[in-house]
Amino acid sequence: MTTQTSENLNLPNGKLAMWLFLATEVMFFTGLLATCMLLREAAPVPGPGLSPWPAHETVHVQPWLGAINTVLLICSSLCVLLSHRALLANQAGKARRWLGLTLLLGAAFLGVKGFEYAGKFQLGLLPGKIGESVNGLSPQREKLLQENGLSYVRDVQERLRALTATVKPEDLKTPPKEIQAAHALLQLTLDGKDEKNSYLRPLTPGQLGDQVNRLNGEFPSLHLPPAIPNGNLWASCYFVTTGIHAIHVFAGLVVLLVLFLFSLGRDSPRLAGRLEVAGLYWHFVDLVWLILYPIIYIL
């Protein structure tokens, strides 16, 4: 029979519980990140020579923004650590300053995140809103997509109409090349007639997507909504992983803010223990970012 002392972990309740909570968080983030990595690995190849996952330029992911956030989070982790050490050394004022700096750095992280999200919202890079050229669909399915599903065709048409509306019919003889191309593409999205006056089917969303991507490559100034193969899947993964992480950062900031307010009031002797437990959570959120950052911004 083993003795009592060797079986105890010699950890205070709070720290042990936090570690157990972090164990559940490890499982949570493993499930989440594994899901996203799997979906990415298994995403169907949209066409010959095409990448199944949108390139960073296509979806406007800037690795340097992620790098800035990495630095911000690591520095904030360092500040929590230094704040805790100052508390242990009975330097309450120093601890308060380090904790305040942590809050600022954490808020800056969320600010950068918000800047990124704002860009995505502006460009319409949101789950369920991205045009996709789905290949290999039966005509019936394409018809459904055209009629009911994708507003993509309508969005492109609107953009094309806006582009060509500024040009008066009499100027159409010598418009810029890109306007000519836009006008031509707009005609292709509508019911048309060919030279022999027989019916010409409008472009399916898939075909339109290919045309739009080609035009965007040729005339970047057109800013047509691009068709991104697996774009909605990318947006789902991007927003869910970074969003859930940002919620964790926010929760950590709230906890640290409460502790900061505590530290303003009285020098509670329990503050050091509480800060250590809250710090564990904060460092864990930081650690998750270290894994999330390469997955989203580098790979």
């Binding site: 899901t35 369920g128 809103k129 599903g149 869910v240």
Partner: peptide
């Protein structure tokens, strides 16, 4: 709720 596509087959 927000039309993510985690559990839908490709092509919807």
């Amino acid at each position: 709720l927000i039309a993510t596509t985690f559990f839908l087959p490709p092509g919807g």
